[in-house]
């Protein structure tokens, strides 16, 4: 067996160990690489920025604690952007983890009160409800049908911000945050199509390509993965966890690319040698 064909049979554990070591190094010695902005991210940012001050943004929050490493940069940069522009925000969680993540973010990492916000007047948290697609339809048609009270148990009519918000007509922009790739269809079918509500989305890296067919006609912009979160941090001038992760991703991916190259070299070497033998 030639050296080249051996490249296709390297023990996987070399890939594991080199990836682990290379990913860890930039955490100790950061490099500080820059990022380039992409169009869906710019459009996502513009959709928030172009709203008149005081517009109402509904955040359908489907964040997952297990996947927070991938999405936290998107979330934090988004909250900072919204709060700095003075929009009103209506948070509702569609996953059980949602309220815990929001509690950590709004209670500690990006406090709305630091931007002059008052709970009940400028932002409201409705807590968790297992909405799914019918629930999204119900929420768009009648918010009080699925949320009688906010997460603290206060009836919605007792919250000043909610007095005039009953359904989709009180929402200027829907921000859909999800982790199951096909869930993007829910908002297209239940918000974008029936009410022509403006929609933007944030999701995992692997779901971006599946959201792309709906962009920009039905979804005005989207963030997919922590890379897009980092881009939003740069674009909005709010550095956060995304920037800290960039260097490790840059170096940690190298063994994978080298191994894919090895696999292909070995394949073509074998093919060439087989051809030689046949002749």
């Amino acid at each position: 067996m030639s050296v080249l064909s051996k490249l296709g049979k390297i023990d996987y554990r070399w890939l594991y160990i080199t990836s682990l070591i290379l990913t860890a190094i930039p955490l100790v010695y950061p490099i500080g690489l820059s990022v380039t902005l992409s169009q869906p991210v710019k459009d996502y940012y513009s959709a928030i920025q172009d709203l008149p001050e005081g517009s109402v943004i509904a955040v359908s929050f489907g964040g997952s604690a297990s996947l927070l490493d991938e999405q936290e940069a998107q979330f934090l940069a988004t909250w900072k952007t919204i709060f700095s522009l003075g929009h009103k925000v209506l948070f509702y969680s569609t996953t059980e983890d949602g309220p815990m993540i929001l509690q950590d973010h709004l209670g500690d990492k990006v406090k709305p009160e630091d931007y002059g916000y008052t709970y009940g007047e400028d932002y409201v948290e409705l807590g968790f409800s297992p909405l799914g697609e019918p629930g999204e339809a119900s929420f768009a048609a009648n918010i009080r049908g699925v949320y009688a009270a906010d997460k603290y148990g206060t009836p919605l009519d007792d919250l000043p911000m909610m007095v005039d918000i009953n359904d989709y007509s009180g929402i200027d922009l829907l921000m859909f945050q999800y982790t199951a790739c096909t869930s993007i269809e829910w908002v297209v079918r239940q918000w974008s199509v029936p009410y022509q509500t403006k929609v933007i989305a944030t999701t995992l890296g692997c779901c971006g390509p599946m959201a792309a067919p709906y962009y920009p006609s039905q979804i005005e912009g989207f963030l997919s993965g922590s890379g897009a979160g980092t881009e939003l941090e740069v674009l909005s001038g709010n550095p956060g966890p995304g920037a800290a992760m960039s260097d490790s991703k840059s170096i940690g991916i190298l063994p994978q690319l080298v191994f894919i190259a090895f696999g292909n070299i070995a394949y073509f070497a074998n093919k060439y040698m087989k051809k030689e033998d046949d002749q």
């Binding site: 890939l15 594991y16 990836s19 604690a65 063994p255 894919i260």
Partner: peptide, 18 residues
């Protein structure tokens, strides 16, 4: 939960090699 997804990096990487 998060570490299970981190483990997936290695399994996906090794399957891509093949």
């Amino acid at each position: 939960g998060a570490t299970v997804y981190a483990v997936m990096f290695f399994t996906l990487a090794s399957s891509a090699y093949r």
